[in-house]
């Protein structure tokens, strides 16, 4: 019994932040310049009161409406989020109830950012191929916008809210459809992408003052902070090694991969990595223009868009690579079924 990706859908909230509005707020920026650098035309934003569970439920419901599977088919729910509805209970438990999944269904949250989808696929494969589950619903959902200070254009220009729903099912096959995987972790980079307060170590602090960094970006300790140069340097250090390890594990050459689907962080970073890895653009999709960096959902959203564009066909080999907050990274091979 092998695990395979049966279907993917995604959901984006209605509210949006486009480049025209960003450019009006920032002297010296133009909408064209923002899109050229980031590859993003528009980011979607969760409404007040709209939480990760709401986005995840909406994405999963699109899957069920599509006929890919029924709620009663799901026997395990994996939900990746760093912006859960509550500290407790587990968001996956709320989603199980709202989707009408069986009460015999396993459900858990896992806290990862941009590497989360690849980790989730690895967990789903393990659950299926060890006989613990037959149909795993993998949800990725984030509302980072709720962490972002309105005066911090460095992250406002990049991140968008959204959720993706992926069904990983079982199939009789000798060949793998998912895997192998490679992983990486380096917690020494934790402070470079962080929301400093709100957890047990430092409580949310309503009196935290607004500070302005040397770039003119404003935030409090309750907001998302990203050190862009450190994250970029980390990516250049880690991703080429990760793709080499992945190819070696899979016994493949770089040109034998049909689509290199990397975490859609921003166009500038992706283009630099593409050239560094020497992958032609037609094998290296950049699909984030209408949603921005949706953290753990960027890879499934890109896969869904590739499929909608008719660029994904049965038997194609995909290399998926997620990387970011933690630092955490992972690469995995997928053969499209």
């Amino acid at each position: 019994m092998k695990a395979f990706i049966k279907a993917i859908e995604y959901y984006l909230p209605d509210a949006y932040l486009d480049n025209e509005r960003l450019a009006r707020e920032v002297p010296g920026w133009t909408a064209e310049k923002i899109e050229a650098k980031t590859g993003i035309a528009c980011r979607r934003l969760a409404a007040p009161g709209e939480c990760s569970s709401d986005l995840a439920v909406a994405a999963a419901q699109k899957l069920f409406v599509s006929g890919a599977c029924r709620p009663t088919d799901i026997d395990y729910l994996l939900l990746c989020t760093q912006s859960p509805d509550y500290f407790l209970p587990t968001t996956a438990c709320l989603v199980q109830d709202r989707l009408g999944l069986p009460t015999t269904c396993g459900a858990l949250d896992f806290n990862l950012g941009c590497s989360g989808f690849v980790y989730g696929l690895s967990l789903a494969k393990a659950l299926i191929e060890t006989g613990q589950a037959r149909n795993v619903l993998l949800l990725t959902a984030e509302t980072y916008s709720k962490f972002i200070h309105p005066g911090d254009r460095s992250v406002r220009a990049l991140f968008g809210d959204g959720a993706a729903a992926t069904i990983v099912s079982s199939i009789e096959s000798d060949a793998d459809y998912i895997g192998p995987f490679v992983f990486g972790t380096d917690g020494s980079g934790a402070n470079n992408l962080i929301v400093p307060t709100g957890g047990a170590r430092r409580a949310h602090d309503p009196s935290s003052p607004v500070t302005e960094d040397s770039d003119g970006n404003q935030r409090t300790e309750n907001n998302l902070y990203m050190n862009g140069p450190e994250i970029f340097a980390f990516t250049l250090r880690v991703i080429p090694q990760t793709t080499s390890r992945l190819l070696e594990c899979a016994g493949l050459k770089i040109e034998e991969v049909d689509h290199w689907v990397l975490h859609q962080a921003n166009r500038y970073m992706l283009e630099h990595l593409r050239k560094k890895l020497r992958v032609p653009p037609e094998h290296f999709p950049i699909l984030m223009a209408d949603c921005g960096n949706t953290v753990s959902s960027t890879i499934p959203i890109a896969l869904c868009d590739l499929l909608a564009q008719g660029r994904l066909s049965r038997g194609q080999r995909l290399a998926l690579v997620g990387f970011g907050v933690g630092y955490s990274w992972a690469g995995g091979m997928v053969r499209w079924a």
Binding site: K37, S154, S214, D215, N227, G228, P229, F232, A233, L236, Y268, H272, K275, K276
Partner: peptide, 15 residues
């Protein structure tokens, strides 16, 4: 000379 320029410099040094 801001973080965007720093990223551009890191990219240039790399490539």
């Amino acid at each position: 000379w801001d973080s965007i320029m720093a990223i551009s410099f890191i990219a240039m040094a790399d490539s």
